[in-house]
Design a protein around this nucleic acid. Structure first.
Length: 507
RNA sequence: GCGCCCUUAGCUCAGUCGGUAGAGCAUCUGACUUUUAAUCAGGUGGUCGUUGGUUCGAAUCCAACAGGGCGCACCA
């Protein structure tokens, strides 16, 4: 390294130049000299998928008689030259269509250009007649073939595609070009979100947007990302949940609201955690947690049926049945079921529960009450064994600072979580709409924060003021979209269902 | 944060005991008028993640670093 700055800093990112790229740059240079190298005057009139859907079943004679002229555009994915005729596959958003390229139809000059100047990966526009080849594949007999965009970099190998995990995440565009399974996964993700919107819209919910940058990060227990607003010279937090804003809207009279958007949590990464992830949160006045469970069960069952075509969801070699009624168990019942040697007395008494937990090697902190210890017991011994969709209810009040107390047992709340395949998918409850109780719970959270719990909640005085105006009896829920998509697409890692998962910078 | 594993051609991967770099696809040259992982013949292509160390000699052994994967921890 000299002390001179690099003369071509913009080129630093392209240090992986090689002969393949150099050849293509030469072709692009020639194109520039001939005129417009990146034309934008080609218009297609159909996509590959429509052709297959409308004409895939016609036989060769019918198509010949039809003589349908079509214009398609897309990426050149393959080329098989057989002398004076050749075949390619063109890929667009809807799928692939075969091109039949014959010198006698296209002309000698363009045919030579197709063989010599075009490269796999180039974007082309094609005009020709639809027909079926000897082997019965729907194809286009090319009469015009135009290069629309030169690709300077070669595509990954045609058979194996791109398999390197890091490259697939960092260069998602390449993954999407060459790996059909990736395209299918993200298509399914879109369909799931579309389905949820349609489902909630049809039931009278309003889709809203609430702040992503919050003065007080509320609605969950998690470490937030912190940022700074220059003009106001103040600290802001990226939201960890939209919950408290959505409930303010219920106070305001928007009695059914939902939001599908990102949350940000400053925590570890794993196959189930990304710093930014997508949640559906929805709230409905004059409903309780039982109604939310019913809605969730109905929504997921219909979703599986509509998106996957079956209510039997296959995941990593297991099958989870969304068709049968979801089992409902309390936290306490779940602990006892998966720890058959325990008795009710073992989990109802703080000292006995603590000794049971310690016997299982579960680390406990001194200040924890019975509720927290029970939840630890549940999470360490039961959660990962809940395979078919299962609602766990009656979470202790101690660990549910925003949930309504149960009328007959104030030790627990009217709250549930949904588990599938041992993983939490959703969390919902009857909302705490008693402003004085909520204020007390916030005070307890603040005490825990002062005692060193980084994830304890702040006291949100405006939220209390909103509740003091009266929030109707309400129930609400959050659904982790990424984990749901993982389940529905048989994806092992959350990164497989995020178009651009968080990665450390290269180099 | 901890543990184990991975990093070789544009892509997918081999590389033995430490002896100086291989294949397939892509690419280039040629043949071929219905192929579809086309076929056939012949070529080009490498800072073996980076930096040190051990050694006569390192893709190979050791260390540190970087990136990634899996698991744990964290994440109600």
């Amino acid at each position: 390294m000299t002390d001179q700055p690099s003369e071509r800093p913009a080129e630093d990112a392209a240090m992986d130049e090689n002969k393949l790229i150099a050849q293509r740059r030469e072709k692009l240079k020639a194109l520039r000299e001939q005129g417009v190298a990146f034309p934008n005057d080609f218009r297609r009139n159909v996509v590959a998928g429509e052709l297959h859907a409308e004409y895939g079943e016609r036989d060769a004679e019918e198509l010949e008689a039809l003589g349908l002229r079509v214009k398609v555009a897309g990426r050149l994915m393959s080329r098989r030259v057989m002398g004076k005729v050749a075949f390619s596959h063109l890929q667009d958003m809807s799928g692939r269509i075969q091109l039949f390229v014959a010198r006698d139809t296209l002309g000698a000059e363009p045919y030579s250009a197709y063989k010599k100047d075009l490269d796999l990966g180039d974007i082309v526009g094609v005009e020709g007649v639809l027909f079926k080849t000897k082997t019965g594949e729907l194809s286009i007999r090319c009469e015009q073939l135009r290069l629309l965009t030169k690709a300077l970099r070669p595509l990954p190998e045609k058979f194996h595609g791109l398999t390197d995990q890091e490259s697939r995440y960092r260069q998602r565009y390449l993954d999407l070009i060459v790996n059909e399974c990736a395209r299918r996964t993200f298509l399914t993700r879109t369909r799931i979100v579309q389905f949820m919107r349609a489902y909630l819209d049809a039931r009278g919910y309003l889709e809203v947007e609430t702040p992503m940058m919050q003065v007080i990060p509320g609605g969950a227990a998690a470490r937030p990302f912190i940022t700074h607003h220059h003009a106001l010279d103040m600290q802001l937090f990226l939201r960890i949940a939209p919950e408290l804003y959505l409930k303010r809207l219920v106070v305001g009279g928007f009695e059914k609201v939902y939001e599908i958007n990102r949350n940000f949590r400053n925590e570890g990464l794993s196959t189930r955690h990304n710093p930014e992830f997508t949640m559906l949160e929805f709230y409905e006045a004059y409903a309780d947690y039982q109604d939310m469970m019913d809605l969730t069960e109905d929504m997921l069952r219909r979703m599986a049926h509509e998106v996957l075509g079956t209510t039997e969801v296959g995941y990593q070699g297991q099958t989870y049945d969304f068709g049968r009624p979801f089992e409902r168990l309390t936290v306490r019942e779940a602990i006892l079921r998966f720890n058959p040697r325990l008795t009710g007395a073992d989990v109802d008494d703080l000292e006995r529960a603590r000794s049971v937990a310690e016997g299982l090697g579960i680390p406990l902190k001194p200040g924890w009450g019975l509720g927290k210890v029970q939840v630890e017991l549940f999470e360490k011994t039961a959660e990962h064994r809940l395979m078919d969709p299962t609602f766990i209810t009656a979470y202790p009040t101690e660990v549910s600072p925003l949930a309504r107390r149960n009328d007959s047992d104030p030790f627990v709340t009217d709250r549930f979580e949904l588990f599938v395949g041992g993983r939490e998918i959703a969390n919902g409850f009857s909302e705490l709409n008693d402003a004085e109780d909520q204020a007390e719970r916030f005070r307890r959270q603040v005490a825990e924060k002062e005692a060193g719990d980084e994830e304890a909640m702040h006291f949100d005085a405006d939220y209390i003021r909103a509740l003091e105006h009266g929030m109707p009896p309400t129930a609400g829920e959050g659904v982790g979209i990424d984990r749901l998509v993982m389940l529905f697409t048989d994806s092992a890692s959350i990164r497989d269902v995020l178009l651009f998962p968080h990665m450390r910078p290269e180099e």
